[in-house]
Design a protein around this nucleic acid. Structure first.
Lengths: 404, 404
DNA sequence: TAACTTTTATTAAATAATTAAGAAGTTAAT
DNA sequence: ATTAACTTCTTAATTATTTAATAAAAGTTA
């Protein structure tokens, strides 16, 4: 059948992820010969999807022509949700915002209207952008909870009777929808555009209100049998009898979540600890601010702030030690919104690894702090759409799964 | 180039693992059309590698002809080592022993002659079998220690100066050699011939003197970046201050290894515990026997024996709970030599999961006991050879990695 | 600056692989 | 029994893809 359609989409996908590639690079990536790749590329240029972008430096011979996607051939709608706030952005093929990132409150707990509100907001933003829907490759959504990305189901939030949340949004917005767990999308972002690029085995810790985990195993985002892999924050690690939100006690989260950190800071101050922090800065009403203040104090060298952050970092490190024993990754990346604290945590985590890892395992594992930072989840949501891009039009191709 | 060579090897491989397949099955598995697969099959029949083995039952239409490997077209040398004893067997294409399994003592610690002794023993057994070397696909070896299967290196045992242990044996025996960690080979055996067959995500616990782990992730044996993945027995899980053989304290192994179980039994008896066991049966000189006696007593309902076994089982279960949170497997399989104790352990492990797992994760995970049992490692070693079979002659095929 | 090596690009010829159509064997229902 | 539905098998026609040969562009060397 029309296999060239598949190859073309594959080329588009690779150009999206790599930004600029030569014909030989692409031939390698799509596992097709150079003449065939050339043919596909010229078709794509005819169609106006791809442009030549000059020559790469010579490596000792003729310089290769480089190809890129035209930035306006397609767009992706990226959505990053947490339990209270949702962000939406529209990105072009260079991952650049074409509208400002919209931020609005959308509580997920006990809110049966959340799916409707989400769909309407997405529709509104697309409409306002003026981009025609046939120019949008799809909608990628990162959300908390137990998410099965393949089935498109969120088992924890965003209940929609009779249909999956993906189907629901998809029929309302009339575009393909892909969802996944927030931590996993952050890992995907790191794999495609961040510190895990070119790495085959990487673990990405999502430092946020909880401690999430996304795993890159053998070059692919790992999801597990039901799509629930990576429940790092609920591994039973402590005998502290502290009840966790999940109903069990002793979860990693009970000693490492940012809320616990703030709580400890507050108790410390009450107990008379010396610090440049004051109780007002740690107000329970604004945990976001409270955490930023603690990190800022630590950055300025406040001993007490460093101490409580280090304690949490050390405990995360104990968890990471387990991960390293089991999965032997090449690199562990601290990412997510709380990665601002990453630099402070690097030392205590390393300390925990020195104490709890077999040296042969820990010496080969780097600990890195993400450079993607705040935007990781939105980037990951876009990457999710483009990962699936070749599948969309190919569903009718019988031999799709027989080819690269 | 000669791609048909690759396809033929691929077919041979699949026939080895599945024993009997129709042309349509094979077409599916090698991702080639039916006419092409037919062509390859008839070539293989001409060469005398494959035979028709009658018809399969109809599924509502014409019955498919089934194909199998001739059992004597090729053989595999399987080696299963532990720190004291090494087993060697020669298997045919139906995984049947063609010689008796040879068992001999070969201590690995502080024994610089071990590699030489191993190579000589292998040579001797091949010679004695009368099988010509060109009929042997290769040698598969399972061994304890930190093993990098891809590089063919064992970092813990079997030191050979200047060359890897694989290269060493290979040049001495003049056959391709593949090695891997014992627990991982057991997992491979379960994947190809045991309880993990057709499963995409399975964890295989190797119950032996330690507690090993082999992971099947996305249908493949997972090895990690340096090949060290699966160090389950050394995850830091206890605050018991018991020193582990690895130098750290609190490792899972310090509460679950069979030696610890025997030790506890002995101490219990000394402390006056009521049991049908007596101290003589638990002699330190023969731990193998001691363990069998404990399991036997438990099987007969001895309360004390059940108690200490359950305790170890529960602690393994705590470790398994962590695995399930992180990897969300479809099934957890208790395998290896100690899997005789598996049935006794099923209950306490399940108990630990109920206490330490988020229900959504544990309810979807089955706990199974292996049926492969004692032979798992030898089977896995053979499977390792055949997994690599298609690569061996194809190394010169430029496009090898571009095709299925 | 010419000769040579290296890398990329283009084309035509050769081969590899699939599709499509029809024949043949089974089951099940009328 | 006969027919319909379905699966497997076989063959020829068609299409897809690669190989190999050549040209073109850069760098390297003497």
């Amino acid at each position: 059948m029309e296999r060239s359609l598949l190859y073309k989409r594959r080329i588009v996908k690779h150009l999206y992820f790599s930004n600029m590639l030569s014909c030989a690079d692409l031939s390698d990536k799509i596992h097709k010969s150079i003449p065939l790749t050339t043919k596909m590329l010229s078709k794509l240029m005819e169609e106006g999807t791809v442009t030549e972008t000059g020559y790469a430096a010579s490596t000792g011979g003729r310089r290769p022509v480089m190809y890129s996607l035209k930035e306006d051939v397609m767009y992706v709608v990226s959505v990053a949700m947490d339990q209270l706030v949702t962000q939406i952005a529209i990105l072009d093929m260079q991952n650049r915002n074409v509208t400002n990132t919209e931020l609005f409150e959308l509580p997920l707990t006990k809110n049966p209207d959340a799916p409707t509100a989400l769909a309407e907001k997405i529709n509104e933003i697309i409409l306002r952008s003026g981009i025609p829907k046939n120019k949008i490759a799809g909608i990628g959504i990162g959300m908390p909870g137990f998410v099965n990305s393949v089935k498109g189901i969120n088992y924890t939030f965003l209940e929609t009777e009779g249909v999956t949340i993906s189907q629901y949004i998809s029929t309302k917005v009339k575009l393909p929808v892909y969802i996944d767990n927030d931590s996993r999308l952050i890992a995907l972002a790191e794999l495609k555009f961040g510190a895990a690029r070119q790495r085959k085995n990487a673990l990405v810790i999502n430092v946020g209100w909880g401690v999430g985990l996304g795993m890159i195993l053998e070059g692919e985002l790992f999801r597990g049998h039901d799509g629930f892999a990576g429940e790092f924050s609920h591994i039973p690690l402590f005998l502290n009898n502290k009840l966790c939100s999940c109903g069990k006690s002793g979860c990693l989260e009970t000693e490492t979540s940012l809320l616990v950190v703030i709580e400890k800071a507050r108790n410390g101050l009450k107990g008379g600890k010396l610090s440049m922090l004051n109780e007002q800065e740690l107000s329970a009403n604004n945990p976001e601010k409270a955490f930023i203040n603690i990190v800022a104090a630590a950055g300025k060298g406040d001993k007490f702030a460093v101490e409580i952050l280090s304690e949490a970092g050390y405990n995360i490190g104990r968890g990471v030690a387990i991960l390293i024993h089991l999965l032997n990754p090449e690199v562990v990346i601290l990412s997510g919104r709380g990665s601002t604290a990453g630099k402070i945590w690097q030392a205590p985590i390393q300390q925990a690894l020195n104490e709890h890892c077999i040296p042969r395992l820990s010496v080969n594992t780097e600990i890195e702090v993400s450079v993607l930072g705040y935007n990781a989840e939105l980037t990951g949501a876009a990457a999710l759409v483009m990962e699936n891009y070749e599948r969309e039009e190919i569903k009718n191709l019988i031999y799709e799964n027989r080819m690269y």
